[in-house]
Simulated assay, not measured.
Amino acid sequence: MREGIMKRISKGFSLIELVIVIIILGVLAVTAAPRFINLSSDAKIAVLKQFKASAIEVNQQMQMKAQMTSYSVQPVDGRPDLTDVDLNGDGNFDIRLKCGFLDNTDVAKRINYSDDQIGNEYEGVNYTYFGFSQSEIKTSQCYFRYEQSYGSTNPSVCDSNDARFQPGYQLETSGC
């Protein structure tokens, strides 16, 4: 008889065992969740840093192309600080440089990105914001801001080697 009781096989978990497992899973979820939440923020910051690096590189590339004889370059009438560049040789000047750097609207044309996930907005004639919204990017506090070169209509003042005339590249990541 005693042998029959010992041979009884228990099936399933008791209520106490299930509660203990649920508590352990809850503790693990609470400790691991912040790491996964920060991954999204870290990814957004990495994308914005890449925008900054791309803007710097595209400006360097455009400065070189403007110096090459294989590209058509012309000054803008009455504005010696502005230069138009024809990149594809079709006779249309598609890019405008201010003191040798991309103006705020042309930087968006030269950086390839998906319009589905990234948006841009302009503030006046000097700033372009790139962020993870299609509107109100500046208020999101998660953006890359490009500030076009501060130029002067006096060509002797417009020196692309002078730090005062270099474009600005700013990251704002407090809202990411």
Rank of each mutant, 00 (worst) to 15 (best):
M1P: 09
M1I: 08
R2S: 14
G4C: 07
M6N: 04
M6Q: 13
K7Q: 14
S10G: 10
K11H: 12
G12K: 07
L15V: 13
L15C: 03
I16Y: 10
E17P: 01
E17A: 00
L18Q: 00
I20V: 13
V21D: 01
I22H: 02
I23A: 07
L25A: 14
G26W: 08
G26R: 02
G26A: 07
L28M: 08
L28S: 09
A29H: 03
A29C: 12
V30N: 07
V30W: 12
T31I: 13
A32I: 00
A32D: 02
R35C: 03
R35H: 14
R35S: 15
F36I: 15
I37R: 02
N38V: 04
L39S: 10
S40C: 05
A43Q: 14
K44A: 05
K44C: 03
K44G: 08
K49C: 06
K49H: 11
Q50T: 11
Q50I: 06
Q50G: 14
F51G: 05
A53I: 06
A53Y: 10
A53F: 08
S54I: 02
A55S: 09
A55L: 00
I56Y: 07
I56N: 01
E57A: 13
V58P: 03
Q60N: 15
M62T: 03
M62N: 04
M64F: 14
K65R: 15
K65V: 10
Q67W: 04
Q67A: 15
M68C: 10
T69Q: 12
S70P: 07
P75I: 04
D77F: 12
R79S: 09
R79D: 08
P80W: 00
D81S: 12
L82R: 14
T83M: 13
D86P: 06
N88S: 00
D90S: 08
D90N: 15
D90E: 07
G91H: 08
G91L: 08
N92V: 15
D94G: 09
K98R: 12
G100I: 03
F101E: 00
L102M: 04
L102W: 02
D103E: 11
N104T: 09
D106A: 00
V107Q: 00
K109P: 01
R110K: 13
R110D: 06
I111H: 00
N112G: 15
Y113T: 00
Y113C: 00
D116L: 07
G119Q: 04
N120D: 09
N120R: 13
E121S: 04
Y122F: 15
E123F: 10
G124C: 06
V125W: 08
T128I: 04
Y129P: 06
F130P: 05
F130R: 11
G131H: 03
S133L: 13
S135D: 08
S135I: 10
E136A: 14
I137Y: 09
I137D: 02
K138M: 12
K138H: 07
K138A: 13
T139Y: 01
Q141F: 13
C142Q: 10
C142W: 02
Y146C: 03
E147R: 12
Q148H: 04
Q148F: 02
Y150I: 12
Y150T: 14
Y150F: 11
G151N: 01
T153G: 15
N154H: 04
P155G: 06
P155T: 02
C158G: 03
D162F: 01
D162T: 03
D162I: 06
A163F: 10
A163E: 10
F165A: 07
F165W: 05
G168K: 11
Y169A: 06
Q170A: 09
Q170G: 02
L171V: 11
E172V: 09
